[in-house]
């Protein structure tokens, strides 16, 4: 997307949010349709069940509807909406973790894969990501899956830049521990240690 197109999209989002703040349901629905795909893809990486993804998205837009009048337009609308989704997801994921002591690994049953294939790398990666604390995982996903900058992630998560860097540092350290052979020898067959 060009800079001009990005600016135009930002302005349009901003106009829509002003309309939402005035109680315009059509504007809310347009925002919903504009963000649904991005949020669904992001959230489905944590919770594969669509009903959970939908619940988080709809809770997010319910909060958008109820809080739009409080938005001061000091930040981008996208950062604000994704920030609400982030906090809603965080609560939901903590609740899920509380209910399922084994974590979300149950959602990703072990698969028999060709140990020399990229699928094996992805299997290991998924396993490693599932071991990360929720805040570290979300930071990594916001950067690598959503493509957000350091400053955007700080705004979304309402944390100082230093905290974002620290979470990313620890996430990378842990992944390195879980994925010892990923960097230089992707086609080596790493032995599972569990």
């Amino acid at each position: 997307m060009t800079v001009a197109a990005k600016n135009s999209a930002r302005e349009h989002d901003s106009e829509l949010l002003v309309a939402v703040a005035a109680g315009n349901r059509q504007a809310l629905e347009e925002l919903y349709l504009g963000y649904h795909r991005r949020l669904a893809r992001f959230l489905s990486r944590f919770t594969p069940r669509y009903e959970n993804v939908e619940e988080i998205i709809n809770d997010t837009f319910l909060a958008v509807w109820q809080s739009a009048k409080d938005f001061r337009h000091a930040s981008q609308v996208s950062t604000w909406i994704i920030g609400i989704a982030y906090r809603t997801a965080l609560k939901s994921l903590r609740r899920q973790k509380h209910h399922t002591a084994a974590g979300s690994l149950d959602d990703y049953p072990e698969q028999t894969v060709d140990p020399t294939s990229e699928t094996e790398v992805q299997d290991w990666l998924r396993h490693g990501l599932n071991q990360l604390p929720v805040e570290q995982r979300l930071t990594l996903e916001l950067a690598y899956h959503m493509g957000h900058s350091l400053e955007e992630i700080a705004a979304i998560t309402e944390c100082p830049v230093g905290t974002v860097k620290a979470r990313m540092f620890h996430a990378r350290e842990k992944l390195r521990h879980y994925l010892p052979n990923l960097s230089g020898a992707a086609h080596d067959s790493p032995a599972r240690s569990e």
Binding site: Y32, R41, F61, V121, Q122, H145, L175
Partner: peptide, 25 residues
């Protein structure tokens, strides 16, 4: 770079938002 590629390589099922939007409405 390997982690980044791995995290973006998985196929994702696309959802149509109409039914979810109706429930929000």
């Amino acid at each position: 770079r390997r982690v980044y590629q791995g995290m973006n390589a998985e196929t994702t099922v696309e959802y149509m938002p109409a039914a979810s939007l109706k429930r929000l409405q």
